[in-house]
Write a protein that binds this DNA or RNA. Sequence first.
DNA 1: ATGGATACTGTACCTGGGTACTAGGAAGAG
DNA 2: CTCTTCCTAGTACCCAGGTACAGTATCCAT
Lengths: 206, 206
Amino acid sequence: MSHASSLILTTSDATFERFRHQSPLNRAMRSADSRDIDTLPARSLVVIDLDLARTPPASQQASWRARGIAHRLIVASKNPSDDEGLIWLDLGAAGYCHALASDATLRQVLDVVISGELWVGRSLMNRLLKGVGSRTHQVNTARWAEQLTPREQEVARRVAEGESNLTISQALGITERTVKAHLTTIFEKIQMDDRLHLALKIHGIR
Amino acid sequence: MSHASSLILTTSDATFERFRHQSPLNRAMRSADSRDIDTLPARSLVVIDLDLARTPPASQQASWRARGIAHRLIVASKNPSDDEGLIWLDLGAAGYCHALASDATLRQVLDVVISGELWVGRSLMNRLLKGVGSRTHQVNTARWAEQLTPREQEVARRVAEGESNLTISQALGITERTVKAHLTTIFEKIQMDDRLHLALKIHGIR
DNA sequence: ATGGATACTGTACCTGGGTACTAGGAAGAG
DNA sequence: CTCTTCCTAGTACCCAGGTACAGTATCCAT
């Protein structure tokens, strides 16, 4: 299953070339007039460079919404923001990404959108999750774990849940002294000096 | 850039084979014990077959949340629902998909998650978009404060930020002893016995 | 004025958490 | 075979955090 046709809306030669070299787009048409979208067959793939069409004014939102339903819109912004992304997704865009993203990322966006799904970047996704009342953890803040050994991660995780050294030692079948040893090296590596700060860090607070 | 290691958590031979034949997973380990996750190096890729681990009970959510932070979790359900997906995304999963999805889709999920983004199916995504801006997350956030006097709230807040008793006393212009007194009554009222648990509660964790 | 809630403080004490110094066994790399 | 990392652990020690018990002072409502 594929798209019927495809169009790249941009005024920038460079942007056009970048997208056109992605295999699903190598026969894409190019235009600088957004009204050309309306001449395409249904379910076409449309890449919109936001240097051309900024956030649409209220008077045009209805027509953009119609385009979002009729086709598969990928919006690429050179200066992306969560707010901007939200607007476009709301208008029916199937993907919102950085115009200067890596080729691999662009390819991924295309694959996902062509297959009928929506592609949303991590930061915007976190924002969406917050919107439904869930607490979200910045996925990229997981750097704390990288410098720790598996055993240390296990101890750190349990500390962050509020377990005491004794409890942890029993759970892991080791001595309380060893738990303390792990913690000392954890504090050393993470640059913290007590379990409360460690817990806050692990939970993404400060 | 790749993942450190990978694990497929399932009791089903068929499910294991399906995922293992995706190239990023062809050297994946297999297990039926979710605790094995905790022995993996940071940022590992973990596929969880929900026939094995259903929606975790409240008592285990904290540990799943920690796993979600430490690794990249892909949750596959044979009977997926938006509600279930929401829960897992909230717990830090990076992907939630149908366990019987096409190979192409599975591949896509893996690609997206490995590249550090989140993958969410269309219906769940629409649900997320609808929820944006509608919910006020503050409702239950303030419940801990209701039973505390203004001064106690101030102390509790600072404790949750990681401040020491001495620091707090200096900031408030009172004795360290008084800070301790406030804390004792706070613990009494909130039913906690140390500052770490207080901090976790204030930040909405357990 | 009396009782209750709030805020503040002192002395004394105990304990869990964290450090310093040390060290042995297992496993993997070169 | 040596070097390193990881996991383990003992002894000894310090201290921030927390409790027990007791007390003073203000404000406010009954």
